[in-house]
Design a protein around this nucleic acid. Sequence first.
DNA 1: CATAATATTTAGACTAATCTAACATTTTTA
DNA 2: TAAAAATGTTAGATTAGTCTAAATATTATG
Lengths: 219, 219
Amino acid sequence: MKNSFTEENYLKAIYKLSERDELVTTTDIATMLDIRAATVTDMLKKLAVKKLIRYERYKGLSLTEKGRAIGVKIIRKHRLWELFLVQKMKFRWDEVHEIAEQLEHIQSDELINRLDEMLGFPKADPHGDPIPDKNGVFGKTRTIPLNQVKPKVVSVVAGVIENSNTFLQYLDKIGIAIGDKITIHAIEAYDQSHRISVNQGKEVFISESVAKNILVVGK
Amino acid sequence: MKNSFTEENYLKAIYKLSERDELVTTTDIATMLDIRAATVTDMLKKLAVKKLIRYERYKGLSLTEKGRAIGVKIIRKHRLWELFLVQKMKFRWDEVHEIAEQLEHIQSDELINRLDEMLGFPKADPHGDPIPDKNGVFGKTRTIPLNQVKPKVVSVVAGVIENSNTFLQYLDKIGIAIGDKITIHAIEAYDQSHRISVNQGKEVFISESVAKNILVVGK
DNA sequence: CATAATATTTAGACTAATCTAACATTTTTA
DNA sequence: TAAAAATGTTAGATTAGTCTAAATATTATG
C-alpha cells in the first residue's frame, strides 16, 4: 500500500515523459533518472504488477489512472513546495529545486492542502510550471513568451522556458521575479533587444533571447 | 559521506537514550525503534566503523562528538518543524509528530536556519521540549509544572510533561496552547484543583493532575 | 557460586534497488 | 531485405536494512 520514494520518482518521471508522448520507453526513463536500462526494466515489471502502468515487453508503457494520480500528486507537491520556499522562505528560484526534490515525498494530504491554501491556490510554480489542484487537474493558464507581447501592454511574469540556474540567476540579478509586472517600452529594430520596465520601476535592457525565455500572462 | 534516514533515526534514538544514561544498550535501541536486537547489533557495527559511536561487544555504546552532532541536529529539525506546523500551518499539537518524523530528514542547513529565524529562534517546541541552536547547544530555560506556581503570578505555557494525544487534545479543548499566559486564581484545598484564567480570559477549572502535567516558565 | 534468566551477538536468509555482462528484439540503413 | 545499430531484457551479483533461530556472554538469584 505504501509507495517508496523510488517508486514515486519513477511515476513522476514517467508522467513527465507522458506529457510529450503517451508511449514511454525504457531508455527515456533510464536517461531521466540517470540509472541503467536494466534497472528500469526490473522496476517496470513491479509497477505493472501493482497496476500503476500498462507494460508489455519491448513495447513501451503508459500510466494507468492510478499511476498517473501518484505522478501528478508528486508534481503538485514539488511545485507547491518550490513556491513556498521562494515566497515564504525567501529562497531564489534557482535554489529551490533540490530541496523540493526531498519535500515532494512528505506524506500528508492535510499539510499539502494547507500549503496550497496558504499560497493562495497558485496556478504555477516559480519556474512557471503549472500546479495541478488537489484532484490532479491542471488549470489552463496560457502563458506566452515576453517577446510576443506588444509594447505598452502590461504583463505578469509567470515563469521561464529554459530554467537553467545561470538564467534564473541572471533574472534575479537584473531584478525580475515571478509576479513582477513588465511593460515593454521599445524593441530595437536591428537586434530585437527589448527596453522594459519592471513594476513601473527603472528601465532595463534585455536581449531577444532573454525575452523569448520569459513566460508571461497577459493582464 | 551521506547519512541515510535509517542511520539518522538510530543516532536520534541513541541521543535520546543518552540523555537518561550515558551508556546505551542494544535492547534499549531495539525497543525505541521497534526492531529486533539482532538488527541493532548489525547497525552498531556500521556506526562504529563510521566513528559515530564508541562500541564494544556486549559492553553497550556511547555517541562520539560526530554522532552526537547528527543526533542533535535531527532533534533540532524535528522540533523546529513541529513548531512550524503548529504556528504557521495551524496544526494541533497532537497532529504534528508524524509529519515532523518525515520532515526531520530534509537536508538543507539553509532551510532549517531560515525556519529557525522565521519562528524567532524558539527555545522549545509545542510539547515544551527544548530546541538546540545551530551549534547543537540547548538553552537552559528551566520550566516548572503549573502546580508549583503561586496564585496571582502570571506564567507562560511552555509545554507538557506527558504528551499523549488525549492530553493534548484535552488542553486544546479547554483552550490552552503554547505561549498562553496563565494566572492561577485559587487552589481548592480539598482536591488541589486549580481555578485559572488563560490570557486574562474567562476562568476554567483544571484538576491537580492536569496542573502537574503543564510546564510553564515564570514571567 | 552454580545455574537460571536476560541480553547480546552470530549465522543465514530475504527484499528492494541497483549494477554489469550477455542475450534478444526491434529499428534503421546500405 | 539482410546486416548493423539501437533498444530492451535476462541472469547473476551487490548493498542496506531487516528478519528468525541458534549460540554466547552477562547478570541475577536460590
